[in-house]
Simulated assay, not measured.
Amino acid sequence: MSHQNTSRPADASGTFALGGDLTINRLGYGAMQLTGPGVWGEPKDPAEALRVLRRAVELGINFIDTADSYGPFVSERLIREALHPYPDDLLIATKGGLTRPGPDDWRPVGRPEYLHQQAELSLRHLGVERIDLYQLHRIDEKVPLADQLGELVLLQQEGKVRHIGVSEVTVQQLKEARTLTNIASVQNRYNLADRSAEDVLNYAERENIAFIPWFPIATGELASPGGALDAAAKQHGASPSQLALAWLLHRSPVMLPIPGTSQTAHLEENTQAARITLTDDECEALTAAV
């Protein structure tokens, strides 16, 4: 890791060795919001989308999370346009297994031949020979999990996927997945206001599996004047969303928050959250206040 300097705030978030061998800064970037409304189609400001991605890397972010379904394929294409040839330390994670009939419409398809096709398309759209972290975007209840993950294992054996992750799973599903293959990461919805995946996080922490919380900020009422986040944020000279990210980073050493945005200014604000140091007492007070 490079020395922490003022121009690379993400370095202050600490590091995690994903899959035991790919060391990344814990504060990453989620590339879902780079697309059009409803995570559908092209961004309204393509030049700004490219600026956001390039700025993320300048800020020390070396973990970018995307999916074939964002756009579809728009997010992956923008990443390639902005950053290819990629820096050596950049880990780009993508996902397959959700189809997109239209804006805000997401449908799981876990048929092995479909997953294989989508992984091949992601390789092409990202311009890589191997995907460092390929995640099953959703478990398709109509297809045996062994068939879904088995296809990702085949891709791994072909050298096209390095590590395998899962998304939106229960502890039981995560345990079942681990009987089928090594699981490097789990991506579930988790934030200060919605901790329904607490048991999955605790299991991931015990097993040293990366936990990638999607929708990490979700401040809402918490940030309203006089709310718990509002008061604590003022004490730290920070915004409520920065404090929500700092809380996540403090919550667990396996936590890899990936706040997303389509604006450079917002990206810079989010990344500064890595510099906020919360005490255990402050974290407990925030947790208890919600």
Rank of each mutant, 00 (worst) to 15 (best):
T279K: 03
E268D: 07
Y114S: 01
H125F: 12
L155S: 02
Q272G: 00
E269G: 01
T279R: 08
P240E: 08
R189W: 02
A204V: 12
I139C: 11
E158L: 14
T271F: 04
Q173T: 05
H84I: 00
N191R: 05
P259S: 09
W214S: 01
R138S: 07
Y86P: 10
S167W: 12
D132C: 01
A56P: 08
L126W: 08
P225K: 02
V254F: 04
A228T: 08
D21S: 15
F211Q: 04
Q118V: 15
D89V: 09
D89A: 12
E282P: 00
A244I: 02
A265L: 12
S262H: 07
L59K: 07
Y134W: 13
T66P: 02
P144Q: 12
Y70I: 03
R162I: 05
T279Y: 03
Y190R: 07
R54K: 15
T170D: 00
G150P: 11
H250I: 03
D89F: 08
D45H: 01
A289K: 13
I61K: 10
R111I: 00
S224D: 04
K142H: 13
Q148K: 10
P101V: 06
L123S: 02
A231V: 15
P72S: 09
Q272D: 13
L152H: 01
Q33P: 07
A177L: 01
L50W: 07
R251N: 15
M32R: 14
P112F: 11
P37N: 09
G165L: 04
D281V: 12
E221N: 14
N188Q: 07
S69D: 10
V153A: 03
G102E: 00
T35Q: 03
W214N: 00
A288N: 15
V166T: 04
N191G: 08
W106N: 10
P216H: 03
K95A: 14
L149D: 13
E268I: 05
R111K: 14
A274C: 04
R100E: 09
T261I: 08
I24A: 14
Y203R: 05
P216L: 05
Q157E: 14
A232P: 05
H266K: 10
D281Q: 15
S224N: 04
S196I: 01
E81V: 03
V57D: 04
N191F: 03
D65T: 00
A82I: 07
T35H: 02
I183S: 13
A274M: 10
S224W: 00
G20T: 07
A223N: 06
A273F: 06
P37H: 05
A177P: 06
R8D: 09
E198K: 10
R55V: 09
R55A: 12
P253R: 12
L222I: 12
G102W: 01
N5F: 01
A119K: 06
H163C: 06
R195V: 05
A246I: 01
T264C: 08
T94Q: 11
P87K: 07
E151N: 07
V254L: 02
P213W: 05
E113W: 11
I79G: 08
G102V: 00
E221A: 15
Y29F: 15
G41N: 05
